[in-house]
Amino acid sequence: MTTSPEFSRTVNLAVTGASGVQYGLRLLQCLVAADCRVHVMISRAAQVVIATETDLQLPGSTAAMQEALASYAGAREGQVLVFGREDWFAPPASGSGGKAPLVICPCSTGTLSALATGASNNLIERAGDVALKERRQLILVPREAPYSEVHLENMLRLTRMGAVIMPASPGFYHRPESVADLVDFVVARLLDHLGIPQTLMPRWGEARLQARQDRR
């Protein structure tokens, strides 16, 4: 896993134009809090969705977007790095770049299709293609309803290639009291798969075990 003297590990995070950008933005905050360096890629459609679904207004230039996202996530200098849509020299664009997991959150069905068919028309698609060919950890978070046969076939194909398909489907057994609780449910599962400690929600069965110990 890629490391640096300043940060514990590197995670590649892509945000595409599906509804549910709150999941990706919250994941960015948690990765920063966990002392990860985050390579961020944001599609044009994702910028539109972010402006529609949140109060965050991202500027157009890569440098200004990096500054805005770093401030949003409370990052240290150099902790959040944003790469342009056609920055073919970015580390995620090559198998000889630093080895790091890639999370596409949310993942549009168009991005699913591109990855399932080997398209590399922008940096996000190329990063996904690299993750697949290099057998690196690739987590895709689609958010669509209902899924068409094409969507399901693409997800099956990508699962067989080694990707993890984790739809943005929050549970309710933790008795959420807000939309933020629902977002944290999905983000907690992502952090678990990345092997990053999280305190957003207890793991299944922990509360029962704690209650049993307290009765002793």
Rank of each mutant, 00 (worst) to 15 (best):
V38T: 09
A70M: 11
C107R: 08
C107A: 06
L138E: 13
G98P: 05
F83C: 13
E125W: 12
G110T: 02
S4I: 08
V32W: 15
A45P: 00
R85Q: 12
E6Y: 12
G110K: 00
Q79C: 05
W88S: 09
S108T: 07
R26H: 06
E134F: 11
I42A: 04
I50R: 08
A18C: 02
L31D: 10
L56N: 03
A116G: 14
T117Q: 13
F7I: 06
T16K: 02
L123G: 06
G20V: 04
Q22H: 08
S96I: 01
G98L: 00
V80K: 01
L58K: 00
R76I: 01
R76M: 08
G97C: 04
S113D: 15
L102Y: 04
T62I: 15
F89E: 07
Q137D: 11
V82T: 10
L81K: 09
G110C: 00
L81C: 14
R135M: 15
E53Q: 04
F89L: 09
S8M: 15
M65K: 15
S19L: 01
A33H: 07
A93D: 12
P5N: 09
A63G: 05
D55G: 13
F7A: 02
L102W: 04
V38W: 06
A45E: 13
C30G: 03
L81G: 11
A70P: 11
N12M: 00
V141G: 07
Q47I: 11
